[in-house]
Amino acid sequence: MELFGALITLLGSIILLIAAIGLVRMPDVYNRLQVGTKASTMGTLLSLLGIAIIHPTWAGKLIILILFVLFTNPVSSHVLARASHYINIRISKRTVVDKLKVTDRAFKVGEVKK
């Protein structure tokens, strides 16, 4: 059982390593955020879950930590994505469509006409 927990922790650290590689390889801010959020959430979750399996009397605190990471990590990535769209960070050339920009432009034109 303890060996199983240790292997889960190792799997979590491998996922964190994938997150780091993705952070370097992806072309623009939004793709980095995508890779970073998903993989780092799952990596931390698995690492702490492995510790909780090895040492079950600490499970309460570890569960609180896991829930905390699971709730706050998507919120912070959402806030960062919104800020980077607001200050016009350069978007990758491979982007197909940007509906938010189109909507913003229509909104501004409508305001000018009023």
Binding site: L23, G36, S40, T41, G43, T44, V69
Partner: peptide, 14 residues
């Protein structure tokens, strides 16, 4: 840089 900082914190929690 803020994204990198955030992810370093998450890894540090592990």
């Amino acid at each position: 840089r803020v994204i990198s900082f955030d992810m370093m914190t998450i890894a540090s929690i592990s």
